Simulated scan of single mutants.
Amino acid sequence: MAEIVLGIGCAHTPQLHTLAHDWDIRAARDRQDGIPLWFHGRKMLYAELAALRAHENIAAELDMATRQAALDASFAAMDRLHAAYVAADPDVVIIVGNDQHEIFSDMVPAFAVIAAEEIANLPRTDEQKSRLPVGIEISDHGHLPDAQTVYPGHRALGLHLARSFSRADFDVTICHEKPTVQGSKSLLYGMPHAYGFLYKNIMRDHVRPHVPVDVNCWYYDNSPSAARCHDFGTALADAVAAWESDARVAILTTGGLTHFVVDPEWDHRFLNAMRDNDTAALRGIPQNELMAGTSECKSWIATSAAMTRAGLAMEIVDYQRLYRTEGGTGSSCGFVQWQRG
């Protein structure tokens, strides 16, 4: 039977591929009146957020040297994760990610499996770039190719996973090819950045046959709970173990941790719960703590459950805070790996 040999969790924030002095582009937007920000489980405006966190003296961490040090440490952590991926030399990879209307738009599945022989990625068009929020286009090089690129998928494993999830009472959407949902003016989109970031920063030149497994984190009408995501991860590990193959499998996930407001206390509780296999803590995270970008931690919950089921131990490779305002807006970056002892 197949064996899970490696797990990787990696942040994928645009800030990682934005020069330190350009963080101020997004910072100016964060400070605008009327933009809601989630912190401590509730939504607030920037003025309230900044007043609430004034005692933390986050302004002391906004200098360019501190920003650059956080970037340097983050890229060193990604180098370590890439080295672990190369050393594990998996035959096939499962990526647990999420879509943000990049490939799904008219429909939003709670769980989806892309069971395709090929997975294409492509850069944005000029028209698509014109509709991006300020400060996002300059980070595209961190997750999109310069020209259309086709990566190997693994249809057989994808179909096996979908069947296994169905037997485990999960209603899963099967995509027999990469979804080609079109945006305005019939412009096709590449893969979601949750996947593209791993292609470029963890797999690099070692993209193996893989299966994208999508968890709807962002769209709350049908986003699965933390407990449901945990059960999904357990079912994922069981499906791999039941696959009649001698393949060595790596499971990668990306996103999170807290953003668009950094909350180090929450981040460390979350990282420690995964490391310590604290199932109750992970399953019990309420929806109001998994909002905005922090919702991507649902993919981490699923991956952590799969690793626990498979018997792999987690190591926290690094954790960095990428603050861009005095109110603590920005992104926190977690880098972890799961390996056999």
Score class of each variant (00 low, 15 high):
Ser331Arg: 04
Gln337Lys: 12
Met314Gly: 04
Arg42Asn: 07
Gly311Ala: 08
Val213His: 01
Leu132His: 03
Asn216Pro: 06
Ala241Gln: 13
Gly190Phe: 05
Tyr220Pro: 12
Thr66Pro: 02
Pro209Cys: 09
Arg321Trp: 09
Trp218Ser: 12
Glu289Phe: 15
Arg340His: 13
Glu326His: 05
Pro133Met: 10
Trp23Tyr: 08
Leu252Lys: 04
Ile138Arg: 09
Lys43Tyr: 07
Thr294Glu: 09
Ala227Trp: 09
Ser225Gly: 11
Ala77Asn: 06
Tyr46Val: 08
Ser331Tyr: 07
Leu45Val: 06
Thr279Pro: 06
Ala313Val: 07
Tyr85Cys: 01
His206Pro: 02
Asp126Cys: 05
Gln337Glu: 00
Asp171Val: 12
His21Gly: 00
Tyr319Asn: 10
Glu244Thr: 14
Tyr220Lys: 15
Gly196His: 06
Gln182Met: 15
Arg208His: 10
Ser304Pro: 05
Pro212Thr: 07
Lys43Ile: 11
Trp243Gln: 08
Gln68His: 07
Ala77Asp: 08
Gly330Val: 00
Ile58Gly: 03
Leu81Asn: 00
Glu137Met: 01
Ala50Met: 08
Ile4Trp: 02
Leu19Ile: 08
Gly293His: 03
His101Asp: 08
Ile174Leu: 15
Leu161Gly: 04
Leu81Val: 07
Ala65Cys: 04
Ala112Thr: 05
Arg67Tyr: 01
Met307Leu: 13
Ala27Arg: 03
Pro209Glu: 05
Ala54Gln: 15
